[in-house]
Write a protein that binds this DNA or RNA. Structure first.
Lengths: 202, 202, 202, 202
DNA sequence: GATGAATGAGCGTTCATTCAT
DNA sequence: CATGAATGAACGCTCATTCAT
């Protein structure tokens, strides 16, 4: 009941509404694509008026871009945590792949949104910035690839080839799993990741 | 001058117009996405009236689905031709991968359309019908995978995993190449395909 | 029933619909201002669908600009006809003023639209092109003013001052008349025009 | 600390805020038109909350109407001051015209707002209340016109005609001057006012 | 059969107004 | 009393689809 708690409540309420909108957008876009997520529906699902959305986001494009940015941040930080630098390149690769796969499988909405995003006009300008693609901000995977190449543990291929040999199969499997076309159990997952390693190791 | 010949002429005329419509749709969607391909523009580019399109396709969705089906047919038949059954599993794998890669790179419009299609509401219902996914109509790759597994040349993994380890990296590399982000020369292509083989071979 | 009449009918039909839209816009804007003329209302009053308007005009702005252009053309050509060049400057001035006044009074919708147009963002860029303002396309009044100045019949004032002394009072009187605030009979009209002449004559 | 002084303080505070709102509205509307003056922007510019505006004005329309009324009051009182009743009708006419012109030129925001106001739905219901139009509250100009008519110095025309011959040219010239289309120097101003006099004098 | 003018539902967005705090 | 977040009706505009010719 004091000023501090009031501020907290205000802050939370404002954030809560913004998050409702973000969440509703994620749900609708993940499930029905961009066409299936008109502002009116997002507003309804978020329990707000349509105009309210424009208090938090300048436009639908901005809303989607921010949603993407939040998800990207989450996934990047997830990948970076818990990796033990003292382990071998292979162990770290397996660890990170497993983590990525687990994240994608346990966050199917996030995954399906990212898929939609990358293959839409919204994401075209961000294509280069995909998980592995950024030149000026190497992520964990990319650093690992480079270390592996220089240690002569990995094939001497461009990093983007190693990335394609890693992420694409994982994403493809998760997609089919998420759509219910296949069922990824722990055994298949482990073997699939091992196979990825076989593909890139020297 | 009889009914039959009349039908033939009509049929040919209809087919020619139909193909114009299909081609115009392919061009526009590949280049500008679904948003950049309204029916009126497709009609104009195809040199037909907008209403005419509805004589050949029940709806825009059907038009797009048929376009997809035609492209799929073409790519499947391309992959199947010229493969020498007497060669080793590895040789046939390399041969077919190279063919697929060459096809995708030399048919960027087809490739870009397929990409758009898979990541849109249009493609969701057809996801199961992807190149390798059909249960009731095994294609060349799938047969090769099964042969390789039974000969103990390939890892004992579900076919869809072998498919993911093969097609996804190829598609990913072609995408980046088509978008101009990378440049796939013959050396990188050969090494990439070899790496795919390393991933699936026992 | 021949081809020619068919073409005529088509042409007329297309023109008729366009004219319906123009007329509905004129009526609504003249009576209720730009705010009182949303596209939906214009469409309803014109007896067409809202989308139809965009077959004839790229945007609402373009529709309004074309409406203005048509009215301007009509009024300019009205002013130019029947003026006898051999008469005195005064006679021609009186004649043209009377014609302008009569036109405005007998076309109150046109008049009210022009009033709205000039005092709106639409008309700002056309301000210089008002009846008397164009430098590169002198109209009848402007030519008359210049002749009168050089003949030393009119005061040696900038043309825009003579224009202001002529058009503004006329427009003002017509406005009040059109709004029903005053009633301009023939006698008042004649005397008012004479007074304008007294204002500009040397 | 009594109720009265409280009311006074409140009253002053309210008036100050009210004036801020009025001023912000004037600035925005004069500069950007009615479309460029949403309530939120007026509130921001006035340094008050959007809801606060509705404590002082029932609606945006009322706000604008009151703004108009204040400007009208100011201009009317400006015109009335300093006029020496003992001078001739002509001298007083020239004096008041010059004052009006000077006021309009030195108060371009007021002028531009009034212009916007008269040619908008807001102003239609107030048309009769224009500077010279009120029957029940004769202003200085109107009294001067009537005096001039009865003294047979001015033409025997309805007062509204004399008004049109006076105000309209002045307003028109000021508008073009304010818009930068022309430049009114002292000489042109003097001659223009003389011309107005020539128009109305007997 | 072929046409393309016409349609109107649906889109993203704005903004005068309200009301809980 | 003052606030500004929230609202939702209304806007200009698009485009898949229909249908009279």
């Amino acid at each position: 009941m004091n000023v501090h708690s009031c501020k907290l409540r205000d802050g939370m309420k404002r954030t809560a509404k913004r998050d409702d909108i973000i969440k509703a957008s994620l749900d609708l876009i993940a499930e029905h694509g961009f066409h299936g997520a008109p502002i009116a529906l997002i507003a309804e699902k978020a329990g707000v008026g349509a105009g309210t959305i424009y208090r938090y986001f300048d436009s639908k494009d901005v809303l989607i871009a921010e949603l993407y940015r939040e998800l990207e941040e989450e996934i990047v930080s997830t990948l970076q945590e818990g990796c033990q630098e003292e382990k071998s390149v292979r162990d770290r690769y397996i660890f990170m792949c497993r983590k990525l796969l687990e994240y994608l499988i346990t966050h199917p909405l996030n995954f399906r949104f990212m898929e939609q995003y990358f293959n839409s006009p919204y994401g075209i300008s961000l294509r280069r910035d995909k998980i592995i693609g950024k030149r000026d901000e190497r992520n964990a995977f990319e650093r690992l690839f480079e270390e592996g190449i220089s240690r002569q543990v990995l094939k001497d291929l461009p990093v983007y080839v190693l990335a394609a040999l890693t992420f694409s199969p994982i994403v493809s499997l998760v997609r089919d799993h998420t759509l219910g076309l296949i069922n990824l159990d722990g055994d298949v997952i482990a073997k699939s990741i091992d196979a990825c390693w076989d593909g890139i190791k020297r």
